[in-house]
Nucleic acid binder design. Structure first.
Lengths: 236, 236
DNA sequence: TACATTTTCGAACGAACGTTCGACTCAGGC
DNA sequence: GCCTGAGTCGAACGTTCGTTCGAAAATGTA
């Protein structure tokens, strides 16, 4: 091809990695659609057109960030799980690995979590593949846990996705100065889950009743009532 | 002012609500930044310029969607909690209310969860205020729970935010055809949390060791190695 | 020094963006 | 019949978007 494509040398890879790092920061701050290539140019110190020497489109840029980040977290998990067979220990490793990586790479993980739907076509399919492998690994661990005797009643799909929710949501609230260490949070979440999932849930049929309920804040209440006429319903 | 502002009558409010519904669908599908006013015009059947008779800016449109949705979920929670004093029951109501509303209004709740950072200025501050009230309510419930004897070791902040993560993440995975009913999921999550938080976590100091770890997929492994030279670190 | 290749970037492209403007229709009150 | 104000919209505004191109600069090789 006429374009350089990928014959390159360390210098090229190093500079691309530097651009990806800056791009991840910009994406994490403004979102993929809200961020412009010009923002990334400004942040990285590379001219607008100069950027296109290192990647061919904005989508590819996001793809590369997600690919590297996701590959690494899966790879690390597989390494740490190797040799460990006890289901409870495997759950702890899963949680610890995910949160360690998340809190050590908050920028990239936010981009991975928050911009999960924006890729299209082949890029999307490739990332979805890795996600599927990660998810299957987690699902297997939970099914082993169930087979091992603990947690006989849980729905593994709901359990795994709830756990990921608990962990992935962290990018919306974690403040290093205020919150416990990654290890401590990982232990807390792992314990919540192991304890919580161990004793099956007995679906307590308590009819939730509503009392009178004072309107809370006059301003929002008024605005809210305004649109209450034609019931603001969901569109699907 | 010269603009009509808000002297209006039911017809106005009803049409605005209809536009908000369509806008919420578009925002939930393409994201706030990725959606154009022209998309909303197409979806709602109102001309591009005609839309501006009903709201004054794209930001205000998002603000209104978030305001109505958030106000309603908080209002419902306050109603359902009124009169109930037992901490465990209050946790169950919190979870049930949140998930019921989430799964009955998936479109609006996705917009509320996923576009939490895009508002600016006064709009942002107003939504943040409601969020704070909601969060404080939940935090109080968990602190009562702790005072009541159960869950004496938990960190209420981490517990509440983990719970919200578990619940809010649901917009990324819930499929009505595949997954259990809202009530069932709510019971599962409430039970996981009550059980999990009841027995304090004993921070098991198990040094997670790594084994060899085979590279998984040659394509991604290669790409990954390419960027591994200059360690792809987080930018903050 | 001379040449070939890699790297850089200013300037510009067409397309799409949010928003505005003025003219139009239409119903209700006089 | 005429006036008023609510509702509607086509056309256009200025700006920003992702991407391209050709030429210059830098680098490596002889």
């Amino acid at each position: 091809m006429s374009k350089p494509e990928h014959s390159h040398y360390p210098a090229f890879d190093r500079k691309l990695a530097r651009i990806l790092r800056h791009a991840a920061v910009v994406f994490s701050e403004k979102g993929y659609e809200g961020a412009s290539i010009r923002d990334i140019s400004r942040a990285s110190g590379v001219s607008l057109s100069g950027l296109y020497y290192y990647f061919e489109s904005k989508q590819k840029l996001l793809y590369l960030i997600q690919l590297y980040t996701f590959s690494e977290i899966v790879l690390r998990l597989e390494e740490r799980l190797a040799g460990v067979t006890e289901p409870v220990a495997r759950v702890r490793i899963l949680v610890r690995n995910h949160l360690d990586y998340f809190l050590q790479h908050p920028v990239e993980m936010k981009v991975l979590s928050h911009e999960a739907e924006v890729l299209a076509g082949g890029y999307r399919r490739e990332i979805a593949e890795i996600k599927k492998r990660y998810y299957s690994l987690a699902l297997d661990i939970f099914e082993d846990l169930r087979r091992a005797g603990t947690a006989r009643r849980m729905n593994p799909r709901v359990a795994v996705l709830s756990l990921f929710g608990m962990m992935n949501w962290i990018y919306t609230w974690h403040k290093p100065k205020v919150d416990p260490s990654p290890e401590s949070i990982a232990d807390t979440m792992a314990e919540i889950f192991l304890q919580g999932v161990a004793n099956g849930h007995r679906a307590p049929r308590n009819g939730v009743r509503a009392a009178s309920g004072r309107a809370a804040d006059s301003r929002t209440a008024r605005l809210h009532r305004a649109a209450a006429g034609s019931k603001f319903r969901a569109g699907m």
